[in-house]
């Protein structure tokens, strides 16, 4: 049991930040991101004994996180893609610092993308290698490169549009 806990601790330390970014990018909501991250690591713990090294452990953890984010839709009534209104921007300004304001806005812009685009772009931003992203998101590497190019363009466009406010 102690050995499992040590291993789990290492996995958590190595992956928690990226998984949190993925969940935050998917939901655009800090509290929901925490819930999803917690659920992801609970599933990692429950299935740790069954992990057979067929994949890199980070790929395995990512896959669980992606599926947890997908199943979030089953119970979540609210659409993650809330329009980025003036009201949200105004509130964000009051609540967070100037630097974090831009990051917060970036997360809100990511939440405007299609579901699988959100998942892919957060991994790109976290510099996950392309073969790993392809493996995690069940997309061929050639197709992935095209997708990434399109998503980068789309995200930049959305961000710049809202920065003008």
């Amino acid at each position: 049991m102690a050995k499992k806990e040590v291993l789990f601790g290492e996995i958590f330390k190595a992956n928690s930040k990226k998984i949190y970014h993925l969940c935050y990018g998917y939901t655009g909501d800090e509290a929901a991101a925490h819930d999803l991250m917690q659920e992801t690591f609970m599933k990692v713990w429950q299935n740790l004994e069954g992990f057979r090294n067929q994949a890199m452990i980070s790929t395995w953890v990512y896959r669980i996180a992606v599926n947890t984010c997908l199943s979030w839709l089953r119970v979540e009534k609210r659409q993650a893609k809330d329009p980025l209104t003036d009201y949200i921007i105004e509130n964000s300004r009051e609540e967070i610092s100037e630097k974090n304001d831009q990051v917060e806005k970036l997360y809100k812009c990511i939440a405007q993308l299609e579901e699988n685009e959100r998942l892919i772009i957060t991994m790109v931003l976290d510099e996950v290698p392309y073969p790993e992203i392809a493996e995690i998101s069940s997309v061929s590497e050639g197709n992935l490169r095209v997708k990434i190019h399109r998503i980068k363009h789309k995200l930049t466009e959305i961000y710049n549009r809202y920065e003008r406010f």
């Binding site: 806990e5 789990f8 601790g9 958590f12 330390k13 928690s16 930040k17 998984i19 949190y20 970014h21 935050y24 800090e30 991101a33 925490h34 991250m37 917690q38 690591f41 609970m42 713990w45 630097k99 974090n100 831009q102 990051v103 970036l106 997360y107 931003l125 976290d126």
Partner: peptide, 17 residues
């Protein structure tokens, strides 16, 4: 902007356990 963010998860692995 992304790499300079201070948005870190507010939980540790012991809490998850």
């Amino acid at each position: 902007l992304w790499s300079g963010q201070t948005n870190d998860p507010k939980m540790d692995y012991e809490g998850v356990l």
